[in-house]
Write a protein that binds this DNA or RNA. Structure first.
Lengths: 137, 137
DNA sequence: CCGTATCCTTGGAGATACTG
DNA sequence: CAGTATCTCCAAGGATACGG
């Protein structure tokens, strides 16, 4: 490769992030963002203890709208993280459950939630300090 | 507590998710969402190998706008995940680096990225199947 | 009971131009 | 070099009403 200027301080890092394979860039982003999505995380976490019906999910997750519950469930089903089982009864009953894949994601997400819980106070303190310093100038 | 209707199928799960302490609800969401934020993850990952200057970050993260780089760096500084060091030189030089806290977050996020990488193909296949089934009816 | 369809508001994010 | 300021656009998400 042609020699560069002496100001070439950036080392042998051509891509954005080493562990973020550019090959799958688009899909990777979507997957990681799903894990950071509030509603997805809450739905997955709520299903941890076993299958639940649509209405039970809605009641177990305060603040979620029908629109977002339906939408989130569809995304999770599409990715194979959650299954939907309709029982041909009257009145109709539909249950949602985690798949094996969904359970492994739950583990990874749980690690993140634990991290957030562990460092919650520290981060809150950091923010308070930063804000007060910014206000003081 | 007053006895409920027989349709009381939801077990002793009053809150949304057991591992998601409602006490810190708001902050927890922000923290977890930060870990799912594309730009935050890329900035943190890019700083893995050592401090970098503003312009180097911008060049190392293709597609990031000045606005989002500045904004993301400010959030990360506020949370105490990244430090900003200005060297009083001419021309001015500013370096950004991970803090210890930032490095621990990097570990947790790396686990998630690894999960995404591991199951990338499976998820892609799941989506393809779901989409084709939806199209077929 | 289990969703779909529609309207509407908000703020996230890119592009651009300018300052210390 | 290292940002700030402003404009603009668009898509995520809430509220609501209706269909199977």
């Amino acid at each position: 490769m042609a020699p560069e200027s002496p100001a070439d301080r950036v080392p042998e890092r051509t891509g954005p992030c080493a562990r973020w394979p550019a090959e799958h860039g688009e899909t990777m982003r979507q997957i990681v963002e799903r894990a950071g999505d509030k509603w997805s995380v809450l739905v997955i976490g709520t299903l941890e203890n076993g299958p639940l019906r649509y209405t039970d999910l809605q009641r177990s997750i305060p603040g979620i709208s029908q629109r977002m519950l339906t939408h989130t469930l569809r995304q999770l089903r599409r990715d194979g993280l959650v299954t939907r089982t309709a029982y041909p009864e009257v009145p109709p009953r539909v249950e949602y459950a985690l798949t094996g894949l969904g359970r492994t994601l739950l583990d990874a997400v749980t690690a993140l939630i634990d991290w957030a819980g562990t460092h919650h106070d520290e981060i809150t303190a950091n923010r308070a300090r930063y804000d007060s310093e910014a206000a003081a100038g």
